[in-house]
């Protein structure tokens, strides 16, 4: 089995969307296109209890076939890499399960195998997680309440590339911020294998009082394909390659 390329959107936010289309629907669309959506809700270190609106975090990730986590700033670094890895494994497992069903028949998943065989299959999943290529588009909510958390976000992103670049598979990262008055999302870092040199990326930001998570996700999904979806469709080609292996 040759590992292919996994595609993920990682959304970092601290609140509920309040503008434009439903982010949960967009996440479901992304999943259909072979792009996994992970969401991390970032709490203030001083914040007590769960703020309102963060249930959306879980719903978006669920619809996007990804992983969600709500964390305090100080554990952001560790969470970002963990969520990304978990989602990778989840995607690979989903794929392996599909193969198993095809070979062994209906409802035959990894969990249902006898322990001996399960032990062998998980080694294969591990191996694929180590060697597959990965694209992560990081989408950062830069609305006013997120501003003082951005240095931590930057650190966490550097840490993410540190973790993932230790794998034998190759990685590509890009970073987008939202909201942006002109294009909904703003490119901060173009596709790059290293997130080390991202000093000052969040320095020039203008944010309104709204959080258009849905439109931002959709725009991120378009960007993933390299160019807007409709252009591709007009060209008569499949906008997204199969995320298969």
């Amino acid at each position: 089995m040759k590992p292919g390329r996994l595609k993920q959107i990682l959304l970092l936010t601290d609140g509920c969307s309040n503008h434009g289309e439903d982010p949960i629907a967009v996440a479901a669309l992304a999943r259909n296109q072979g792009v996994t959506v992970n969401v991390i809700g970032v709490l203030d270190d001083r914040q007590n209890g769960r703020p309102q609106g963060l249930e959306e975090v879980e719903s978006i990730a669920e619809a996007g076939g990804g992983v969600s986590q709500i964390v305090y700033q100080k554990s952001l670094s560790q969470t970002v890499q963990m969520v990304t890895r978990q989602a990778m494994n989840q995607t690979i497992q989903g794929f392996v399960n599909k193969e198993l069903t095809e070979i062994l028949g209906k409802d035959q998943t990894i969990e249902e195998l006898p322990p001996e065989q399960r032990g062998e299959v998980v080694e294969v999943v591990e191996e694929l997680g180590e060697s597959c290529d990965l694209d992560v588009l990081v989408l950062v909510d830069t609305s006013a309440s997120m501003h003082h958390k951005l240095p931590t976000v930057k650190e966490a992103l550097f840490d993410l590339s540190l973790s993932l670049n230790a794998r034998s598979g190759s990685n590509q990262f890009s970073v987008y911020a939202f909201p942006d008055p002109k294009k909904t999302i703003k490119k901060m870092v173009d596709w790059t294998p290293e997130l080390g040199e991202i000093h000052g990326i969040f320095s020039k930001l203008n944010s309104g009082g709204y959080t258009p998570t849905g439109p931002a996700l959709k725009e991120a999904l378009y960007t993933f394909a390299g160019k807007p979806l409709f252009e591709r469709l007009r060209d008569g080609e499949d906008p997204y390659e199969e995320t298969g292996f």
């Binding site: 494994n89 497992q93 990894i110 399960r118 032990g119 299959v121 998980v122 080694e123 999943v125």
Partner: peptide, 10 residues
């Protein structure tokens, strides 16, 4: 997490 448990067993 059955996969994780299996990796530990291995």
């Amino acid at each position: 997490d059955s996969s994780r448990m299996m990796l530990e067993v291995n």
